[in-house]
Nucleic acid binder design. Structure first.
Length: 301
DNA sequence: AATGGTCCCAACCGCGGACAG
DNA sequence: TCTGTCCGCGGTTGGGACCAT
């Protein structure tokens, strides 16, 4: 039985907006005792609410570490960037924005950011130009398997991440070629099967300009990661502190962050994003070692 | 001033996963 | 293995605020 929130079925439980008195009771209780089991909080705190309601109120409003006020443009840029990688995983996005809640970010996305992206001609779901999405492109994510596919001519495929030396999948370069894969073997990258000259663009800013360890059948050139090419703004890139926070090794080590790898074909120059494997798996499974691998990939480049 | 439409946010709902017995 | 319970997440909604007419 899934919906067995017994507390919700009890009589006389209040719903709707919280009164200041209720807030005070909850705040006082959790400050003194911690929340412990949420289901027991309302009783112990003297509230006629269910545990879920208390939990939500605490997380979204009463928590002392919450940042109040409007989102900065840097925060909004970061949300867009994270959404491009994580999709609607609001809690994971929120985990990377200190003091912000998933609910807050979700509301901002639905009420504001979506609109802004559309105005810029970017599809808020795929993060691609609307002109591309208007066709029959229908990107889908299969969360229960390792597949990551798209209808139309944009065919993604993903390799089973059983071996971390074999984890990158790149979008195929044209309609006539078969799907191609790319791999990272330790610090080296091998790319095979590309029929067109390809550009690999890492979203991770390179730390130096030493030669790349990429090898492959076709010439591969690394280009600077640019946010503005996709979203027309450099504001957050101009903020070194935020950028440092986002890309510092410590940050990557502490957060399960999956870095997208952009692949560009010289022929059509459409920018696309490839993922190591399905988003849910990547977010749940991607280990720190792999993050380091991705990070050093960016560093090496 | 009244009304209707839109926007935005807080809170609820329903689901799936984890876990204990 | 099954069942019940709890927790957390993402989607949805109710209602207040704001704006245009």
């Amino acid at each position: 039985m899934k919906r067995s929130h017994s507390c919700c079925y009890k009589q006389k439980l209040r719903k709707g907006l919280w009164s200041p008195e209720e807030d005070e009771k909850l705040l006082n209780y959790i400050t003194k005792h911690g929340h412990g089991s949420w289901s027991s909080v309302p009783k112990l705190a003297g509230l006629q609410r269910c545990g879920k309601s208390c939990r939500l109120r605490w997380i979204n409003y009463l928590r002392p570490d919450l940042k109040r006020g409007a989102f900065s443009s840097e925060e909004q840029d970061l949300i867009v960037e994270l959404h491009a990688v994580l999709g609607n995983r609001w809690s994971q996005i929120a985990a990377r924005l200190p003091g912000r809640t998933d609910n807050e970010i979700k509301n901002l996305w639905n009420s504001c950011i979506k609109k802004k992206l559309r105005q810029k001609g970017i599809d808020p779901i795929t993060h691609k130009p609307l002109s591309e999405v208007d066709g029959d492109t229908n990107i889908s994510f299969n969360h229960s398997s390792t597949s990551f596919s798209s209808e139309s001519n944009q065919d993604f495929f993903v390799k089973e991440p059983s071996d971390f030396s074999d984890y990158l999948a790149f979008q195929k370069q044209d309609t006539n070629s078969v799907s191609q894969s790319s791999m990272i073997d330790g610090s080296s990258v091998s790319i095979s099967g590309f029929e067109t000259q390809s550009y690999v663009k890492s979203s991770i800013p390179p730390r130096d300009n030493t030669s790349s360890t990429i090898s492959g059948e076709d010439h591969v050139q690394v280009i600077e990661p640019t946010w503005e090419s996709n979203f027309g703004t450099t504001s957050h890139l101009d903020n070194p502190s935020l950028e440092e926070m986002k890309w510092s090794e410590e940050y990557l080590n502490e957060s399960l962050f999956l870095n997208p790898v952009y692949v560009k074909s010289e022929t059509d120059f459409d920018s696309n994003i490839a993922f190591p494997w399905s988003q849910s798996q990547a977010c749940d499974v991607i280990p720190k070692d792999l993050q380091r691998m991705v990070f050093s990939f960016g560093q090496t480049l």
